[in-house]
Design a protein around this nucleic acid. Structure first.
Lengths: 293, 293, 293
DNA sequence: ATAGGTTTTGTCAAGCTTTTGTACAT
DNA sequence: ATGTACAAAAGCTTGACAAAACCTAT
């Protein structure tokens, strides 16, 4: 991430304007730099090291004392000058770190920055969904606890529902979104609903563990253009498989997440949305006639 | 959120103009500051501490005794932290205070809190639009400067255009939104467009000072369900009044803001939207047939 | 023009300007060259070897020591790689296509991808600014309409102001950024401000068409380390030329864009920033040593 | 506000090693 | 052409020092 180690101390000094002695002092005292060494023991610095020295200089110019300047230079994020940007990989890593520390305000800050820089679609498909997958994997490997998973999903759920505010309003086609009976994981469903909303749909959202009767009753009243039922695990499908055809006759029914794969396997005729919520939303949305005035 | 502890007492003194001895006295006597310490025992202050000192100075300048000033400075911070107030009145007051101080970051924070709690519609009609009106009034009374108006509208515009991201996507009816030729104030137009977006419309936005030829050309390409032309002042209407009927024959044309009142007066047959952007958007949207699947 | 495809050490020396002894030393010490041999044992070099020697020389001139220069010359490809493959040309073409179609959502998608791949600096100087220039050219040639220009600048402005969120926060030096009276094009000013932000500055931004009184008043309150006034056209400078010296005495004033060239021509003593916003920001930032509060 | 002591930080020096261009002998 | 030698330039480590900035307590 920092580039090859190519400068000796003299060159770093020339480029930064900091004397070699001082560079060594900063290394020794604050660990500002950690150069690799040549075979003979000479320090070798990378372009990233040069950046770090310059950052340090900026803080010094700003009136900070060396020790504090160095601390800040070492953890760039703290200093709140972070330009929002999206490197999905590192954002996910940061998000993971904040979840590990149960640091909600940091997590919110990361999401704030992200949303300031980039569309909701991209946040969902490049950060949120991959992050959830990774968290699941880490949990499976025993590296993350149930507590972490709970924490992460409550933070993300709150944030996404914040974005969702008002999503039932308007003139677009209506999608009724719910999780299958027994299913507690809502995030996939919410992400899908948000992506539809970004495409002008109106959303009626029913959350986790929704009985089919509820769905049917609501649908009778709302006459949605699409009913989306979601579950992570495919096992939620079997218990209600015999009721889906009736539902599907009357409305257009789609299954999302693990349920989609199970439905495919079971030969159900419903629309399957097994993939990334944003992509599937795009696909579904493209297949619906557009509104006219 | 006070930030990292990075200033030694000398720097805090330089930035606040309060001597180090006095800063130490305030700490000892009133507990105004509670700096962390370096390994060697030096005081380390955060940017938040600097704010507190400045608040203290404000009270002192106001003629208050040091003890009282300190108590108030401490209490004020307490209040800011505890009360995530949603009372529109006080939110507008806070927003005004942050604009008076040209404090972008505080203004953003207020808007963050607001948007986390409340729909975009509400933010627009309860806070942003009234705030702009008040700012205009204060300006007319000589209490606010052009500088404040410029600053405020930059911040709000950025924020609202942030919310706008992706508003061209989807399946809803298309609204072409622009400001009349010569009109530089975009905020009303953006607010209206956002409110339409919240109702599922697709937006094509062309910004300030848009020539009618431009509008016509874009409309030919996009075939919008509605063309919205906005201006604060009614004077922008006369120069183009003779061209509106032709436009209105081919598409549905609406005028917003001051332009609406002027158009009414001039007996133009276009749709007039003189009121609050959100209400007008609701009205317009209700009158357009909804999309069906 | 094409020389022999192999040459002996004397010829390589003449062409590269490196003494034969040194060439042999580089071969022995760093394995920089691996010449074939003539029947009699003479070294035979290829044109590729000459390239490698020249590369080595480039690095040496760049201040690197011989061992490092050689290592880099040997894995040239490795180094090129760390510029993430981004073809600015084609991105700009795509952007142009989406603007031609007034397709906001596609434009946002392109920008999302871009921000995921490279820094804000790069987006500005490789894509946004060149794109705007091209759009201007296409407009001059009658290939793009005012509608397209309006549309594009709305989208880009929203995006850039999104990235701007929080740019007033922090501890860096303050830059007051505004467009000259009469100037409506803000994108250059915003780009410059973003580039400064990425270098640790705090930004107070006042937008298009800002009266000098406004600037002065805000400056009195903020005491910025730099005042940046921008305009595309040089004509905005004359009307206010007589007021600049007074401003410049009290604060450090810079003119950006077309205004910079006009100011130079008029013999004004202010700092001129005629070039690419990112480069100029780098230059300014290096030359303004300290923030004072 | 002052006095007397401590911490922080940039700089310097001594003594030794590594690196590298050039020179020379075979 | 090869191998060795050499000396200047640039680095390394350890240790020390003094000015500036801070501390506490009176």
């Amino acid at each position: 991430v920092v580039g090859p180690s190519v400068f000796r101390i003299g060159e770093l000094s020339r480029r930064s304007g900091v004397s070699p002695e001082l560079l060594r002092a900063w290394e020794r005292r604050y660990g500002l730099l950690d150069p690799t060494r040549s075979k003979g023991g000479l320090r070798l610095y990378s372009p990233g090291d040069l950046d770090r020295v310059r950052t340090m200089q900026r803080y010094l110019d700003g009136g900070m004392a060396a020790a504090e300047a160095a601390t800040l230079a070492l953890r760039e994020e703290q200093l709140e000058r972070d330009v929002p940007r999206l490197d999905p990989e590192s954002v996910r890593r940061e998000l993971a770190a904040s979840v590990d520390a149960f640091d909600e305000s940091r997590a919110q800050g990361i999401l704030d920055n992200l949303l300031a820089a980039v569309t909701v679609d991209t946040v969902l498909s490049e950060v949120v969904m991959p992050f959830l997958r990774e968290l699941g994997d880490r949990w499976a490997r025993g590296e993350a606890s149930v507590a972490h998973e709970h924490f992460a999903s409550s933070v993300l759920r709150g944030r996404m529902l914040g974005l969702a505010r008002g999503w039932g309003r308007g003139v677009g086609p209506i999608a009724l979104v719910a999780c299958l009976p027994g299913e507690q994981h809502e995030l996939g469903a919410i992400a899908f609903a948000l992506a539809l909303r970004a495409r002008g749909w109106r959303i009626a959202y029913f959350g986790a563990d929704t009985p089919l009767d509820t769905v049917e009753q609501a649908a009778t009243q709302l006459e949605p253009s699409l009913i989306v039922l979601s579950s992570v695990s495919g096992e939620r499908v079997r218990p209600i498989a015999d009721r889906l055809p009736a539902l599907n006759r009357r409305w257009r029914v789609a299954l999302g997440g693990g349920a989609a794969r199970a439905a495919d396997a079971a030969g159900l005729e419903v629309l399957a949305l097994p993939g990334d919520p944003v992509e599937e939303a795009e696909r579904v949305s493209a297949s619906v006639p557009s509104a006219t005035a």
